[in-house]
Design a protein around this nucleic acid. Structure first.
Lengths: 193, 193
DNA sequence: TTTTATTGATTGACTAGTCAATAAAGAACG
DNA sequence: CGTTCTTTATTGACTAGTCAATCAATAAAA
């Protein structure tokens, strides 16, 4: 009973199921069949809409990045000065939508995927560049020429603590935010050089 | 023509080949056959010595961690005070033996493996705990109660920058050391509260 | 003759991707 | 309005390929 206009619904369901499946399995050896079953359809339909497994994974990655980007925009929208903006950027990475075990596991696996897939590599670079330039833009007025190094360190610490959270199976989370904010304070005080 | 005492030689060759193969393939979907071929033997022999693919991967992981641990020990052995020790620990992670593309790719994949394998998880925790306690032990005399947070941030930044290097395909490397040392300076100056 | 080293061949399981077939929703048409 | 045609949705069954693991067989050392 073909209800028309199913494509966007199916695609969204598959993307969501993919992230859950990666979280459940722990790596990218997820099967199209399992993803499709989790999304309530046959594997043939998944192939029909996405063409292949690679494209399903990339769609899941794009979605994850988009969720993160939206979170950052939302956090930035209520800020008024550079300092607030910096805190908002830092906090955005550790919100509940980005900090669930499934999502963290997916991120980690996207890093691995980027070693094989040119497109995944490109997407990850976009994320990193955007994070860097967001930080840089708001640090520059505060600490001038030291901004670039500071942005690199803050971005690196965000990634590092985020990844560590993927390893730690416990639920307790937001200590990470605290530590990146502490680094921000140190940088603003003239930490490096 | 069975020359006796081949076991340790074969095992070492397989471990080395595994790391190269992970670097070449980019993920843990390396096949036992390919690893064995790279190490100059049949896949049956690899199974004979290791029992299964999982154990080959774990052996490669143990080896990678052991190389890192040895590097740290070596660097620490020529230090005289806490500050030198801290610098040595930071530098050890970014030496050439740890900073080759194959090895970085392997580390990244071991993080993923640790989501499936209890043993991989255990090994990674040992690495992190040792890094943390090494840093903590040498920070405490210098900054007292702030040492724990500082150690977490420095460790997190090491991991973050190391992982980022896995993504960046260019060869240029040791900027990472510089940035972690800059964070160390900031922490010693009283960066975080 | 027992132990160690070694491999070619095979098995058994799994999986990405294809395809033909089914069915309903709308469009075109007289 | 009813009929035919096209498009969209959907799946079970199948293909072709891969790979981990096993095993029986070979051979040299002890």
């Amino acid at each position: 009973m073909p209800k028309l206009g199913m494509e966007p619904i199916r695609r969204a369901a598959l993307v969501k199921a993919t992230i859950h499946e990666i979280g459940a399995v722990g790596n990218l050896d997820v099967t199209v069949s399992k993803i499709a079953k989790r999304a309530g359809m046959s594997s043939a339909l998944a192939h029909h809409y996405f063409g292949g497994k690679d494209q399903i994974l990339l769609a899941a990655m794009r979605h994850t990045l988009a969720v993160y980007a939206a979170e950052v925009r939302r956090a930035l929208s209520v800020t008024t000065d550079h300092h607030e903006r910096l805190e908002a950027i830092i906090r955005a990475g550790f919100t509940s939508s980005n900090f669930q075990p499934d999502v963290i596991a997916a991120w980690l696996n996207f890093y691995v995927l980027s070693q094989n897939s040119e497109e995944a590599h490109r997407l990850l670079r976009i994320y990193q560049r955007r994070l860097h330039s967001n930080l840089l833009y708001n640090l520059r007025p505060l600490i001038g020429s030291r901004a670039n190094g500071a942005a690199l360190r803050i971005g690196g610490l965000i990634d590092g603590l985020y990844m560590r959270q993927g390893l730690a199976r416990d639920r307790g989370g937001s200590a990470a935010t605290k530590h990146v904010l502490a680094l921000l304070r140190a940088e603003l005080r003239g930490g490096a050089q």
